[in-house]
């Protein structure tokens, strides 16, 4: 049984290490700086109150991300902090068995042509705010998966733990989320004349 002072020191250090990550996730989930602070502070308080449930200290990151994510799901979405564009049941329907071909054939031909022949300078021309806007445009289940893996560097197993789904579902959400992200970026680039008009 760890000493209270040792546990507090451990918790304080992990919170200091992860504050930026927690705020990043909260900010992208709420898309509003003012709304992102409360979930982080409340999740940290909640985490301390249930610190006994952390069985493996190496899993602190997925454990506290899960607390924050649950907080967002249970409280903030109900309060419509962000427009409820996501319908979990619809988006998750058949997710594990989703066929890649089906995913791609749902995209416009113009996008597919570009998708198969990406322009090298495309990513260089994108601004950070373009990327953030594209990430924010993703339905919540895909947005969270992309943030946890591609921004926060969590593994598929850790992400599955945060979202309480199977690693296979995480893999599927990653494929779909990144395809939707590409589509959003392509649309933006097209509108802003960042890609060749003839494509």
């Amino acid at each position: 049984m760890p000493q209270a002072s040792e546990l507090k020191a451990f918790f304080s250090a992990r919170i200091a290490e992860n504050t930026h990550s927690l705020y990043t996730l909260a900010l992208r989930l709420t898309a509003n700086a003012a709304d992102a602070e409360d979930p982080v502070a409340e999740s940290v308080a909640k985490a301390w109150s249930v610190i006994g449930s952390l069985q493996d200290r190496q899993r602190f990151r997925p454990w506290i991300f899960r607390i924050l994510h649950n907080r967002f799901i249970s409280d903030y979405r109900k309060k419509s902090v962000r427009p409820a564009e996501t319908h979990y049941t619809e988006l998750d329907k058949g997710e594990d068995s989703e066929q890649v071909a089906q995913l791609l054939t749902q995209q416009p031909d113009e996008f597919l042509l570009w998708w198969a022949n990406p322009e090298r300078e495309f990513t260089n021309n994108l601004l950070a705010e373009d990327l953030i806007a594209a990430i924010d445009s993703l339905p919540e289940v895909f947005r969270t998966t992309v943030i946890l893996i591609n921004i926060e560097g969590l593994s598929y197993d850790e992400t599955a733990e945060v979202l309480n789904v199977s690693p296979g579902t995480v893999r599927s959400r990653m494929n779909r989320g990144r395809t939707l992200l590409q589509k959003a970026l392509w649309q933006h680039a097209k509108d802003a004349d960042l890609i060749t008009a003839s494509r």
Binding site: I135, N150, I151
Partner: peptide, 23 residues
């Protein structure tokens, strides 16, 4: 690589103060 950098948002001082007090 671009996404990792795009996610770099400074923590607001008000949040940091809240967390410091909480800890």
């Amino acid at each position: 690589q671009r996404m990792k950098h795009a996610g770099e948002t400074p923590i607001p001082a008000s949040l940091q103060d809240r967390l410091n007090k909480l800890i």
